Simulated assay, not measured.
Amino acid sequence: MTSAIQYQGRKARRTGSEQRRQAILEASLSIIVREGIRAVRHRAVAREAEVPLSATTYYFKDISDLIADTFTLFAERAMKEVIEPFKEQAFGLMSQFSRDSLENPQERDRLVKMLAQMMAAFIVDELQNRRDHVVAEQAFIQEAILDARLRELADMYLRQHVETLTMACELFGCKEPKLDAELIFATFLTIEQRLLVHPEKISQEFVEKRMYNMLDKVVPLHG
């Protein structure tokens, strides 16, 4: 995915210039998380990044280019720091099971419980320790509805999640692995969104109960 990502704004030609451009994107992302996308303006970003106003307008003449590149940075970073580590953890857990072992109802239930625990721990950790990432992700997905230039990037980003879950569902032997993967990911997003609004509900038990209920319907019992 990262090789397919294309930035919109003016390219930096020197190391110092790239650092300044990066600082502008970081500042834009901070404003989005704190105040929302509509608060992203050249003056606000320049002030946040502690750079001259001329620097933001040099790299990003169009504010929509700045927003698009901010989400490009977010997607690129999320691939390395969130999606890949989660993928490794999930497939490491599933390597303990085989499709034959899932013919045993107890083993199948053990897998469902372990996956529910792992996913719940991941969501709780995201909301407690990387809340900015979750807020930015939700903002990114919502903005793609309004900005056609973001749709391809958003689709690419979301597809990475679904493809990982599709591989997992294929290992489970699901009849409709892609549809089941979409269901799992939709549950993920819905729970995160709900807990952003109601942080008082954030707990391992709250999330795990809902993930188990969904996974118990998705993971087939063989034999």
Rank of each mutant, 00 (worst) to 15 (best):
G9Q: 04
K11N: 14
R13E: 15
T15R: 15
T15Y: 10
G16D: 08
Q19T: 12
Q19P: 09
Q22C: 10
I24Y: 03
L25P: 02
E26N: 14
G36D: 04
G36W: 09
R38N: 13
H42N: 12
R43I: 11
V45I: 02
E48G: 10
A49G: 00
A49R: 05
L53E: 13
A55K: 05
A55N: 06
T56S: 04
T57G: 00
K61S: 13
T70S: 15
F71S: 07
T72L: 07
E84C: 08
P85G: 05
F86T: 09
E88H: 09
G92F: 02
L93M: 01
S95M: 07
P105S: 13
M114G: 04
M119I: 05
I123C: 06
I123Y: 00
R131L: 09
E137I: 08
E143M: 03
I145C: 01
D147P: 01
D147R: 07
A148V: 10
A148G: 09
L150T: 09
E152T: 07
L153R: 08
L153W: 03
L153S: 11
A154M: 04
M156H: 10
L165C: 10
T166G: 06
M167Q: 13
C169W: 00
E170S: 02
L171Q: 15
G173Q: 13
G173S: 11
C174P: 08
K175P: 01
K178C: 10
D180L: 08
A181E: 05
L189D: 04
L189P: 00
T190V: 08
R194L: 04
L196F: 01
V197H: 10
V197R: 13
S203W: 00
Q204H: 11
K209R: 11
R210N: 10
M211G: 06
M211E: 05
H222W: 06
G223D: 14
G223Y: 07
